[in-house]
Amino acid sequence: MILIMAFLIGSMYAGAIYMMMRRSIIKLVMGLIILANATNLLIFTVAGPLRRGAPPLIAEGSIVPDQLVADPLPQALILTAIVISFGVLAFAVVLIHRVYEVIGVDDMNNLKDDSE
């Protein structure tokens, strides 16, 4: 399974980088979204053996999990990462919207002031 996951994550990285190199700002943002997803999956995959049906929960009545469970620590970190990346994304989206409103262009190469 790790091979399949690795293939997916590698493709997502390739797609993200490709999108980020486009000149259209909205594509840049899409690239960022893919990049964030790819990175979350990367941490998830690399951090520990992928386990099926073993969430890190403690059943009612016991004080430790009854079976071997998935590693909770990377999950906690990824959860934080998902939320933060949404914060960044929301900011970026509003920012490009604003940029387009003001400048009227969505071509990255034309954003720079010519007078500089």
Binding site: G10, Y13, A14, I17, M21, L42, V46, P49
Partner: peptide
């Protein structure tokens, strides 16, 4: 650009294959 991206993607793929399963430190989990 596509060429560069695919190289990067391939690098990440190899990276995952190399790294996963190697745990140098005991996890605190």
């Amino acid at each position: 650009d596509a060429g560069i991206s695919i190289i990067i993607g391939f690098m990440m793929l190899m990276f995952i294959l190399l790294v996963s399963g190697n745990h140098y430190y005991e996890s605190i989990s």
